[in-house]
């Protein structure tokens, strides 16, 4: 399962960021696929991105004149969420893959969560409300609408968008200033923290994870627990990278469906996919 997940993550990241011309020339893809959103946090200003970011799309629609319901962004979020829930985070998100790989670097004693996890895990909901929704409407721009999450916080935009573009495009590089270094600092902080703590951005800050978490309880893809066969050995709890209890696995908004519990169960009483 571990190897399968890594393969899916790598393939999905390569396919959805496969516009090589953009990387070579410091430009971005401008084709019709960008009418649609990818499921994960994938900056549409990444030179390789072939589709739009759902959080970027949500903010772009909220930034329009007047207050409009962002139907297209909500439509993609409902579709991906209803089918997959946070399976998107565990298997399809490029920034999740980056954090997974960083956590494999064997230099610190690994931790599943930060201290004050019970409080900090609500940070992603605060980011969703304050930066994506309220921030996009008026807060940070002094009543001028700005995509506040993308502008002030998103490390995925810095890693997949800013660094390759600034590397290949001299004109853009000459314009980088304080805001770029602020975002670079956030990215470096998350990169360093990811080596020690499992997916800190996903657990504490990602607004997309907050949205998909709401769908976890009823999404099509589930991890099912056959209670009758369970011997309560708690191997699944020890294997869970986000420190969920057996009862919380799958239905908790924090479960990213990584499948480590399924692999760890000696009785094979945890299964992927929903049974009829």
């Amino acid at each position: 399962m571990k190897r399968l997940r890594l393969t899916v993550q790598l393939l999905f990241t390569i396919v959805t960021n496969g516009y090589m011309y953009g990387f070579l020339n410091g430009k971005i893809y401008r084709g019709a696929l960008k009418y649609a959103c990818v499921p994960g946090l994938n900056c549409y200003s990444c030179p390789g991105a072939i589709a739009a970011c759902p959080i970027g799309a949500l903010q772009a629609l909220l930034n329009q004149r007047g207050l409009q319901i962002p139907f297209v962004a909500l439509g993609f979020l409902f579709l991906f969420g209803s089918f997959l829930g946070r399976f998107v985070c565990g298997w399809l998100c490029p920034f999740g893959l980056v954090q997974d790989l960083l956590h494999r670097i064997p230099i610190f004693k690994k931790k599943k969560c930060l201290p004050l996890h019970r409080v900090l895990k609500y940070g992603k909901y605060a980011v969703l409300v304050l930066f994506v929704c309220v921030g996009s409407l008026f807060l940070f721009g002094g009543f001028a609408k700005v995509p506040a999450f993308c502008k002030y916080l998103c490390p995925s935009g810095t890693l997949f968008g800013a660094l390759p573009l600034l590397g290949a495009n001299e004109a853009l590089r000459s314009q980088a200033g304080g805001l770029f270094f602020w975002k670079l600092g956030i990215l470096l902080g998350i990169v360093l923290l990811s080596v020690k703590v499992y997916r800190p951005f996903c657990q504490y800050l990602c607004p997309l994870g907050a949205v998909y978490g709401w769908f976890n309880r009823f999404s099509l893809v589930q991890i099912q627990w056959e209670k009758g066969r369970c011997v309560s050995c708690m191997a699944c709890e020890r294997a869970c990278p986000v420190a969920l209890s057996l009862q919380e696995i799958s239905c908790s908004p924090e479960c990213i469906r990584c499948g480590k519990c399924v692999d760890a169960c000696p009785q094979k009483c945890l299964h992927f996919w929903k049974k009829s």
Binding site: L165, L166, F181
Partner: peptide
């Protein structure tokens, strides 16, 4: 509903221009 409101075009226009805010400029 988004199709009828022309919201796909809004998303596309945003996604095909380099987003200066997103890259910190």
């Amino acid at each position: 509903i988004g199709v009828f409101q022309g919201q796909f075009a809004v998303v596309w226009k945003k996604a095909v221009m380099i987003c200066l805010e997103c890259i910190g400029i």
